[in-house]
Design a protein around this nucleic acid. Structure first.
Length: 509
RNA sequence: GGCCCAUUCGUCUAGUGGUCAGGACGCAAGGUUUUCAUCCUUGAAACAGGAGUUCGAUUCUCCUAUGGGCUGCCA
C-alpha cells in the first residue's frame, strides 16, 4: 500500500483523431485524479514514426479542451516531468534497455523483420498460427543468447540492425490485481519475448510506457481493456527494473451499437452518429464528423460517456463534470463492454438543452450560429422553442416562422382544417385582432375565446387555421404567445397574405 | 488455433444466498395540450445453458456456449 499522491495519465498515440473510446479513457483518468486530488497528465506516445499523423496531437488537445478535461501536465502545458512527448525523450530509453541486457533480463536479436515474417508464414502453413519469438524459438534464432559473444560484439560494432527483446522466463505465474477485474494470472510460457527497443533507435510502447510511467511517478494506470494481455509483461518490466508497480484498472471496451466488435472509426458516419468528439478531415479530404459540430453540448457528451461503463449507484442520471468527479470511483466501473447507444446520447443532449437558460441559449445562437438579432428577442424565441428542440439549431429550424414569414403552408393542415368558411372566419378574426388595444397573450386569448363562442365553434376548428396562416405549420408552441411575439401588424399582414395563398392553393387542387 | 477478459429487459445498468429482480433510453397504450414537444400514468421486456455447493441459487464453484480483446521492430 503506497501513500504516494495520485498521478494518472492519458497516453494517446497521435495516429489519428481521438475517438470517443479514447475520450472516455481520458475522462475516467481525469475524474479519478480530481476525485483523489491528484494530477492528470497527458503524454503523447509517438514512438512509431511510421504512423505519425500531422495534426493529430493538436486534435487530441483541442478535443479534450472542448470536453473540459484538460490535464494539469502535458505537452504545451508544462510540468515537472516533461517533456511529455515520447519522441522528445528518445535518448532516455536506450540505457534502460541496455541495463536489462546487462542483467540478462533482455537480449540483442538480429533477425530481420522479413526473416520473422517468413517464420510465421511457414508455421502457419504447417497449421501453427501462433508462432512466437519466445523461450523455445529463441534458441534457434539469431540473438545474443545463441551467438558466440565475439560474433555478437562484431555485429554490434558493424552497425548491423538489431532489436532488444525481453527474455521472458519459463513457467512463472505472473499475478497482479486489477482494480476492476480482480486478480489476473498469466503464465510466462504463454508470453513471448516482446521487442523493447527497435532497430530504428526508438523504444516500443512497452518499454517507453513503463519507463515514463515510472519517471513521471504514475500511481494508477487506467487504460482500455485491449492492454490487459500485455499487462503481465509490464508487471515483469517493473520488477525487472526493481520499480514499484502502479495499480492497474483496465476499462471495458466501447462496442458498436449494431452487431459486434469494438467501435471503430468508420462505424459512425455509416450508422449515422459521430464517433469523434469533433470533426476531423483526413489528408485526403475525407470528413469524419464530430459531436461538437453536430450540435451536442460537451456536458451532454461527457455525461453520456461517463455512464458508458460506470454508474453512481443512485437514480441520478444528469451529472455535471464536477458532480461526476466527486461521485466517480473505479470500483463502480463495470467489467463488460458497453454498446454505445445514439438514442440515449440524443436524450442527454435534449435534457441539457432544456436546462440551459434562455439567456445562455441566446448567447449560443449569436456565438455559434451567427444570429444578429436583439438578445432579448432571441431569448424569447429560445423560451418558446427549447422544449421541442434537441439541438440549438433546432430552435432556428423549428421556429423559422418567428423570424420570417412562411412561404409554404403545411399540406395536411390545409386539407384537413381549411374549409369553405375558413377565409371568412379568418377575415373576421383579423378585424377583432385589429381592434385590440393591448396586443399581448392574454387579451388575444380572451378575444379568441369570445370569438369562437360567438361562432359556437370549438378551439380545434379555428386555432389551427390561425396557426396555419401565421406559421405555415400545424404544430408548435402556444399561438397566443407567438402572436404577441410577432406583434399586431405582422400578424395581420400574415393573416391577409395567408388567406389569399391558401385559398388559391385550395382552388388549384 | 493459443492466451486473457466478459455474460441481468432490444440498449446502458442496479441488485441480493430467500426481492413482485429496480431504474434509465427506446417502444406501446392512456391522460394533459388547439396541435407538436414537454409533462403525468400504465404496459410489454432480462438473470445464456448445464452440473455442483446449499434447506434455498440470478447471486458461490466448475464445465459448455456465446461475445470481445490480444496474438507486429502498432499503440
Amino acid at each position: 500500500m503506497s501513500t504516494s499522491p495520485v498521478r494518472v495519465r492519458f497516453a494517446p498515440s497521435p495516429t489519428g483523431p481521438l475517438h470517443m473510446g479514447g475520450v472516455r479513457t481520458a475522462l475516467y483518468n481525469y475524474l479519478f485524479a480530481k476525485k483523489n486530488k491528484g494530477t492528470f497528465i497527458i503524454r503523447i506516445e509517438d514512438t512509431d514514426q511510421t504512423r505519425f499523423v500531422p495534426g493529430a496531437q493538436e486534435y487530441i488537445m483541442d478535443a479534450l479542451g472542448w470536453c473540459g478535461i484538460m490535464p494539469t501536465e502535458g505537452p504545451g502545458i508544462g510540468g515537472d516531468y516533461g517533456p511529455y512527448v515520447q519522441s522528445e525523450r528518445k535518448e532516455l530509453y536506450r540505457p534502460f534497455a541496455e541495463q536489462l541486457v546487462k542483467e540478462e533480463k533482455a537480449y540483442y536479436a538480429f533477425d530481420s523483420s522479413e526473416e520473422l515474417d517468413q517464420m510465421r508464414e511457414k508455421a502457419k502453413a504447417m497449421g501453427m498460427p501462433n508462432w512466437q519469438y519466445n523461450h523455445i524459438t529463441r534458441t534457434s534464432l539469431k540473438n545474443s543468447l545463441t551467438l558466440p559473444q565475439d560474433q555478437v560484439d562484431a555485429l554490434l560494432q558493424s552497425g548491423a540492425p538489431y532489436v532488444i527483446r525481453m527474455k521472458m522466463p519459463r513457467n512463472e505465474d505472473i499475478r497482479f490485481e486489477d482494480i476492476i477485474r480482480g486478480w489476473v494470472v498469466v503464465n510466462t510460457n504463454n508470453l513471448d519475448d516482446k521487442v523493447l527497443f527497435k532497430s530504428d533507435g526508438m523504444p516500443t510502447y512497452h518499454l517507453a510506457n513503463i519507463v515514463d510511467d515510472h519517471l513521471m511517478k504514475i500511481s494508477h494506470v487506467i487504460r482500455g481493456e485491449e492492454w490487459l494481455p500485455s499487462a503481465p509483461l509490464h508487471v515483469m518490466l517493473y520488477r525487472a527494473f526493481g520499480w514499484d508497480v502502479p495499480q492497474f484498472a483496465h476499462l471495458p471496451l466501447l462496442l458498436r451499437p449494431d452487431g459486434n466488435g469494438k467501435l471503430s472509426k468508420r462505424d459512425g458516419d455509416r450508422l449515422g452518429f459521430p464517433v469523434f468528439p469533433t470533426d476531423w478531415t483526413t489528408s485526403e479530404g475525407e470528413l469524419y464528423s464530430g459531436y461538437r459540430e453536430k450540435g451536442y453540448f460537451p456536458e451532454a457528451f461527457i455525461n453520456m460517456l461517463a455512464f458508458l461503463g460506470w454508474n453512481p449507484g443512485t437514480p441520478q442520471e444528469i451529472f455535471s463534470l464536477d458532480e461526476l468527479s466527486s461521485a466517480f470511483t473505479l470500483e463502480r466501473v463495470s467489467k463488460a463492454g458497453a454498446k454505445f447507444d445514439p438514442d440515449k446520447t440524443r436524450w442527454y443532449q435534449q435534457q441539457y438543452l432544456r436546462n440551459y437558460s434562455n439567456t445562455a441559449l441566446a448567447e449560443l445562437l449569436k456565438a455559434q450560429l451567427g444570429r444578429t438579432e436583439d438578445t432579448k428577442l432571441l431569448e424569447e424565441v429560445c423560451g418558446m422553442m427549447k422544449e421541442r428542440a434537441t439541438f440549438i439549431q433546432d430552435i432556428l429550424s423549428e421556429g423559422s416562422y418567428l423570424f420570417e414569414r412562411p412561404v409554404e403552408y403545411d399540406e395536411q393542415t390545409v386539407t384537413k382544417k381549411w374549409k369553405e368558411d375558413s377565409a371568412g372566419l379568418m377575415t373576421e378574426w383579423i378585424e377583432i385582432l385589429n381592434s385590440l388595444s393591448e396586443f399581448t397573450q392574454e387579451p388575444i386569448e380572451n378575444a379568441f375565446k369570445e370569438f369562437i363562442q360567438s361562432k359556437t365553434l370549438g378551439i380545434g376548428a379555428v386555432l389551427p387555421l390561425f396557426r396555419l396562416l401565421i406559421t405555415g405549420t400545424g404544430t408548435g408552441p402556444s399561438m397566443f404567445e407567438i402572436a404577441q411575439f410577432l406583434g399586431k401588424e405582422e400578424c395581420i399582414a400574415r393573416l391577409k397574405t395567408g388567406i389569399n395563398t391558401v385559398e388559391a392553393l385550395k382552388t388549384n387542387t
